[in-house]
């Protein structure tokens, strides 16, 4: 069987698989990280605010998202987003937002739950004494968070956050279920068109591995360096 492999198919499809597929994957990962992190920070602050009206909905949201399989959530938003769009924009019919936007909304909202847990742990890891010291200096809650707590929390949590981004990078492959052309989707398209499943799937796996493993090495080095600083 191995003798009949055709690695040329990889070379031929390289512009498509990397130029379109991988670019889609990386763009989605980057944007979803930015939005997810922002929303996640807001959720974390809501949970830690001590105000029930804020903390209860945030807690419910985070726990709900973390209890559901990503595949199910992808489907949920795939069908729900057009109706939300219709509701928000007050249009006649459900709004077709496009597959990329749908995926971006899904991943941002889903990963926000995970990022918020990381942020929350990070904020809680900053010693209580720091908050007391900041308040004693007359800083407002906002100033305290912005200048004292969050910078330290982000530093503490940076490795975990980057690791979560690697997880997100791998998770984006699940857009396969709504037939988007990400790295895996592109590889699958070629694989099925040319009947070259073995070559294309192994190739895709290799790219995922190289990027994930490479990134995790960077995280590890960062972690080691931060351990020395502290």
């Amino acid at each position: 069987m191995l003798g009949s492999l055709d690695f040329d198919v990889i070379t031929r499809s390289l512009p498509y698989v990397l130029g379109e597929g991988l670019r889609f994957t990386l763009t989605l990962t980057a944007l979803a990280t930015v939005f997810g992190l922002t929303l996640g920070t807001i959720l974390a602050l809501m949970r830690l605010s001590g105000m029930k009206a804020l903390s209860v909905p945030a807690t419910l949201y985070v726990n709900l998202m973390r209890s559901l399989p990503l595949v199910l959530v992808i489907f949920w938003f795939y069908f729900l987003v057009p109706y939300i769009g219709q509701f928000v924009l007050r249009t006649e019919r459900p709004v077709q937002v496009g597959a990329f936007a749908s995926a971006l909304i899904t991943f941002s909202l889903f990963e926000a739950a995970y990022f918020s847990e990381i942020m929350r742990a990070g904020i809680q890891s900053v010693a209580r004494g720091q908050a007391a010291a900041g308040s004693a200096l007359g800083l407002t809650y906002r100033q305290l968070m912005q200048y004292v707590i969050l910078p330290q929390a982000v530093r503490n949590m940076l490795p975990v956050m980057l690791t979560q981004t690697i997880v997100l990078f791998q998770d984006t492959s699940l857009v396969y279920v709504i037939s988007l052309t990400d790295l895996l989707g592109a590889a699958a398209t070629v694989a099925n068109r040319d009947g070259r499943l073995v070559e294309m799937y192994v190739f895709a796996a290799l790219i995922y591995f190289v990027i994930s493993f490479g990134a995790s090495l960077v995280v590890r080095r960062l972690q080691a360096r931060m351990a020395i600083i502290r």
Binding site: I166, Q170, D171, S173, L174, Y176, L184, A188, A191, L197, V198, Y201, V202, A204, A205, Y208, F209, S212, F213, S216
Partner: peptide
């Protein structure tokens, strides 16, 4: 190896490859 390849791709490797 098992941590750095997405679960979906791993399933494809087992199932198709």
């Amino acid at each position: 190896l098992f941590r750095n390849i997405p679960i979906l791709v791993q399933l494809f490797l087992w199932y198709f490859v």
